[in-house]
Nucleic acid binder design. Sequence first.
DNA 1: CTGGGATGC
DNA 2: GCATCCCAG
Length: 291
Amino acid sequence: MSVLKPDSKTRISLYYAIALFLGLNIPFADSQQLQTDGVSEHVYGGLPSSNNLSIRSAYVLDYNSARKAPWWVAYRLDNNYRRTPKRTGKWKTYRNDPDRTDEPSENDYSGVYSDPIRNYARGHLAPYMICGGDRDGDGMILDADRDGKVEEGDDIDEAITVKEINYHTNLTPQHHNAFNGSGGTWYQIENRVRVLQEEHGEVWVLAGPIFGPSTYDEIGNGVQVAPMFFQIIVWEKLDEPHWEAYMLPHHQKAHQSIEEHRVSIRHIEAMTGLDFFPDLALSEKERISTY
DNA sequence: CTGGGATGC
DNA sequence: GCATCCCAG
């Protein structure tokens, strides 16, 4: 990744047009439109790819139909969005994505958790803990401190944010006890996201699977299991972007220190074919080769 | 809806 | 004890 491509300006305009088009079709029940478009809200430095974009209230993803998994998921996180309703009742229910017909389903996950070798749980790529806050700017949120029921003073408009976080398009099979659950490397990265957000106020995260040219494991009706995952956490300090990038082996002994899995962003580009931060200036872009 | 497993503060 | 990631019945 040495130079910006000559056509990058044209490409950015195209992305923006797509984003605007999709953004205008976000199904916010009775709510106001978001004040900012979803791409600039959630994706730092430009889209890594744009095959089948879904622009949601709390995140943006590009869906890979062939593997039934996202290419990547992006979200911005601040204190506001951390005010998440308690994950109970209808707020914890996994849902079909109304905009897709080729996503993983409930049945695809049948039996794979109890299988001691697989032990796959539905791992959120954009995690549940980011789906809170006052997104429509009306001064109300879904209350995080009570019991999950909608009560007087709660903002039911924000329910869509929670529903979307639980769409099957945002979930991939992940080893539960070894990887996704507490102590696993994925869980530790999510803790790192929390720490960096508290330290810097806001962070941007890119997360996704890493597939090779072949397949690793498959569940249900063609839902491919990723052999590795990546996460990139970005924050700004004195208007300069900083980041930590991780490449995580997805296996049954995934409890190592996350520090062992630090890589450059260029490593992740090489393994995924994605182009991270295409809008950043060349001087910033060059830094992705190092960390 | 209430039960559980696992880890880490 | 608290929290978080999940699951089963």
